[in-house]
Design a protein around this nucleic acid. Sequence first.
DNA 1: TTGTATGCGTTATCAC
DNA 2: GTGATAACGCATACAA
Lengths: 319, 319
Amino acid sequence: MANIRDLARMAGVSVSTVSRVLNNHPYVSEEKRTAVLQAIEKSSYHKNINAVNLSRGKTMLMGVVVPYSDHPYFSLMIKGIAKLALDHNYKLVLIQTDYREDRELEALEMLREKQIDSLIICSRTCSMDIVREYAGYGHIVLCENNNDEAVSVTYVNHYRAFYRALTYLYQNGHVKIGYCIGRKTGVNSLQRQAAYRDFVSKYNLGFNEDYIIGDCLYFEDGEKVVNKLREMASPPTALLVTSDQVAAGIVTCCQKLDIAIPGELAIIGFDNQPIAKMMDITTVKIPIEEMGSNLFLQAFNGDKSRKEMQVRLIERGTV
Amino acid sequence: MANIRDLARMAGVSVSTVSRVLNNHPYVSEEKRTAVLQAIEKSSYHKNINAVNLSRGKTMLMGVVVPYSDHPYFSLMIKGIAKLALDHNYKLVLIQTDYREDRELEALEMLREKQIDSLIICSRTCSMDIVREYAGYGHIVLCENNNDEAVSVTYVNHYRAFYRALTYLYQNGHVKIGYCIGRKTGVNSLQRQAAYRDFVSKYNLGFNEDYIIGDCLYFEDGEKVVNKLREMASPPTALLVTSDQVAAGIVTCCQKLDIAIPGELAIIGFDNQPIAKMMDITTVKIPIEEMGSNLFLQAFNGDKSRKEMQVRLIERGTV
DNA sequence: TTGTATGCGTTATCAC
DNA sequence: GTGATAACGCATACAA
């Protein structure tokens, strides 16, 4: 495979001149330019990006850490990231972690080893101490409400969103309210839990550990949720479900079992995915794709910033 | 940031020795090894992967081309690829194309520019002539039934699978059968179309263009399908739906409209995603994740091969 | 077992 | 405008 030196020889010019026409730099005579262009033409020459990267110290590669790339929430976020990446000539390196810390570390190592210029962590399990260690090697962007100065963040106020949704249910007459969530730890989850605690405490509803159902990620988890409810002596009459997928699964399952919604069980989903609209599920709209785009921009620009995205309750038929 | 030369200086050895301990090569005395190790320790040294790549001519990066990364089918395939990539120390570069040829070309260019070692194309729109041009720059793997010798392929026999499903519907008394599909062109789609044509011709059912409904990708497209059926004077009584998501959407929509399934409309989905099981949808099981894993292995190994994956009709309640 | 020297393909600095 | 040449950081054949 021809390299820049071969081109120089063929065109009868120096490598610098070749490099200049390759990168559209000024100060090169039309004559020589065309000579080089011709050489390129008949030599099947192509840049070796690694050499460029080494020389420039940049890779135009951005890492994206997600726990599950096949979850609609993260899929959509990736979509938002990818859209802008394309515009800015960046490629994405996808790192799927399953919330395993060693995988997250691998991603951070890529940053250190300069294989990626910057890193978007859509959701993490490792400590901020670790993240902070790597902040010097490139921009790190998080998708959570976090005040750490080493990183930029794009987030929604999950505390407020949760509290708002809970209040809505309360106003609709519910006093036994539970919620379904992916994992119970994690920054966002803890903020929601705090909102839940504050809420039940304010209205004296009593805190019931059973009303918090974890491991709810996919549509099919809805069945599990319904089964749990049926085993309870005093099940909640309303459920906040932190993923429209799961909410849809619950609704579907209830239909099969003739459990009336919202009569016997009220549901509020999160995200406002298309499935929620189609199934007429009340939900809290989260601008996931826009968040992805903003994450990209923060990683791209590099100056530290914090951006809160707004959410909105969309009233439909499940409350 | 320290480099290998600094380490050599600090440890009082040569760069080659440093390189040897860095890469766990034999023939280096314990003494010098520890000296180097210590130097590494206190210098916050880390490899520059680009330099390694340049020197080695490899990147340990594999490109993955998908039209839509947020579609459950491709998400799952990516998952299968990612799983093995992890085992083999490969990272994935995700290229989402929306079936735009220029994006596919970008991916192929990455191969040529040595930014990726190999490329998995999960679905393409560009011609094989173009793909073939790039085959010399690295392994290219396709997910379609294709005999081109320049590439490896992992595929399912969509013709046979489709024919089988159609026959099943026929045996269940249906003579007005239609199908829903993502895009109407594309290798896999054409093979299904061929099966459909052969099928209706064999049983003298008549070919009805309206019975082929395109742009069916997501859950929410189910509504569109149902609306189309309702506008028909003589709608099909059974539908092959090439994505469980869409099948689920159709079923959901029919429930809302009190259209009996399978009484008024029989449905066979494809993929056997969890949603199909949960909604009791008859479907053709496709081992998507395993296909992803196999695609990875083919790209990894590089020797040209063809692998057909088996599918199976799973009888449930929608036929 | 160790070190020297060279190559990998570009970019960038500087002198001309 | 143009061309040497020195980085960029590492791997490795070869010599010792």
